[in-house]
Write a protein that binds this DNA or RNA. Structure first.
Lengths: 196, 196, 196, 196
DNA sequence: GATGAATGAGCGTTCATTCAT
DNA sequence: CATGAATGAACGCTCATTCAT
């Protein structure tokens, strides 16, 4: 079997083990056995346990970003694009539960893990931040980094909502998307309205 | 020294170690040494490493809940109470960085840790949920568990905002509180406004 | 059992294993089992395999040096002292075969092993070097480092002779001592005699 | 490329790796890569790592012996022959540093390595032994195996001197040869002179 | 003949946990 | 009550060695 295929197959299996057991409790022995390869293959391909984990979160994170970036809406309006991105995000959660859980359900606070996940979060938050700032001063009277903070709050709301969804599978993806979309719109609309 | 005091001292030290190194990387050796007790004492008092960790997150979570519950506002309005609670929440983050980091900065996805933190989150979300429902049908047209989902989204937003704050210590607590308050109010105001 | 005694006991056993199998082929498992302790004890006491090995060569080297330094002769003449030292040296080889083999029979060329053994050899060679130079210019017409080189040659001769002795146990210690003494004296007497 | 040439090339490379890293630390991967062949080739040609190492020390030892045997002096006197052999010996050290280091700088005490190097040493010592005995009873009053022991001492002196030389490259080959020659002559002259 | 792919077996090391005192 | 001493069990990692092609 060619190396590239094997690597992908190993990553699939490793993601499942990492998602279930967490980084530390996952053992290379178990991953190797589950993947149907020997341990030395894991090391030949990924160098170390850390390397394997990083390869997995990079692949999963890359796919999530790709989905967000390549989301296309029916019309070109900003809100339609936002809706399309939210749908892509939730599709990722739905289809790649392992990837989601590893990326956002387990925060391994050691570097370079935390750094990689944090970088991903920053990228998403940055995109939201630009959406806020493109909204023409919706948050007047707040200090400069407010939009950054708000963006992170929205990212956290989305993560939390996705995790809530995993515990409530009877709710459909579109319903969750609608809720998240409403939350984001409400927040993007700015605080003034809350006091109107 | 009475046992109760010893236990509290040990928990203080253990929290610091857990916050810095994470659950898995923290070693009982290090905790025992830092606390100035012998390892058998740790086991006599807490039974196991897991028991020690659970004791710590229970104490920290209990204190956070206590603060939220006992928050009192100048006047009796719901919004004043919300504001007071947000301030309490951020005070906890500020004063008990270790506790906060262990509770919400490091998610150990293994049971029974995840369960305990999730239960804490549920309690806070439940309170928010009641606030939403007390808000007189602000989210009409959404399926029944919507308010629960929204509550979790707001909790996640708060967690994320607090973690963002830890990375931006130049921002004052009141500024963060203002932002979070605005976000919560905007969301509680319901989705209709976003389309007004 | 107190720690100090255990350490010595472990070193005794480890020396035997290192002498028989060599550094690389010796396994910590085997040493632990032979010493009747568990592997974690080895690490608690010596830190690592390298640490254990270093501790052993330091103890063995130190004892050899002690013997050489504290050798006392019947009368105070230089030749009597030399003879006493040679006897001490061969007694060490006889009584501490393991130590001898580890020190001089297996050269592990990796640092810091090589450095430690080389330092021991240097100390012995330095003493011999001083004997040569105290011999009042016995090696005239040779370049400056000659006495250093000759000293190393004599050390090598002694090592080789000792190893030869280990293969010829029927020869007595005093006979070997006599031979080595004669060799050293012949060389110390200087090259001129050879051409006399 | 014919097999014979390939083998020689591989041995050249392997010698360099063995000399630098030592037997145990040298990896077949590194040797294969450095030699530009695949690992299965190494095994096809030499059977095993041990086989490769043995092949190398046999080739190096054979070349050293060849040089010693074929050394020719200007005149036919024993001392001129001795001098020529010493020169050949040191030329080998100078020109084949790898071979020298593998043969005498790293003593792998495990069989069958030690045996092979010991056999080489025996052959050289045997030649010296015959020189001693041809010297007409220079060592009277010493037990029968004395000349054998002395021969080994001289071999050890030569090894040690050569290793010393490697650490003092500023000394010329002829100077070292002169020293070694003087040492050998002094010893061959017998012990009686020392007491003259 | 030659190699990319694969592995069995073992090693050094760690750590939560428990006696004997 | 308190601890110094000790360990069982497992883990990450490596390497000489061998097939299948």
């Amino acid at each position: 079997m060619p190396r590239e295929r094997r690597e992908q197959q190993i990553l699939d299996v490793a993601g499942g083990v990492f998602a279930r057991a967490g980084y530390h409790s996952a053992s290379m022995d178990e991953i190797a056995e589950s993947a149907g390869v020997s341990k030395p293959m894991l090391y030949a391909y990924f160098g170390s346990k850390e390397g394997l984990y990083l390869a997995y979160i990079k692949r999963a994170g890359g796919e999530l970003l790709d989905r967000l970036v390549s989301a296309r809406a029916g019309d070109a309006s900003a809100s339609a694009l936002l809706r399309a991105r939210i749908t892509e995000f939730l599709s990722f959660v739905e289809e790649h539960g392992d990837g989601w859980r590893v990326l956002f359900g387990e925060v391994v606070s050691t570097r370079p893990f935390a750094e990689n996940v944090a970088a991903l979060r920053e990228q998403i938050a940055g995109a939201i931040c630009r959406m806020i700032e493109a909204g023409a001063g919706s948050w007047p009277g707040y200090p400069p980094p407010a939009s950054d903070a708000i963006a992170h709050a929205l990212v956290g709301a989305g993560e939390s909502l996705a995790n809530w969804w995993l515990d409530h599978p009877e709710v459909t993806r579109d319903e969750v998307a609608g809720l998240y979309y409403a939350v984001v719109q409400a927040v993007l609309a700015g605080p003034s309205r809350a006091f109107a």
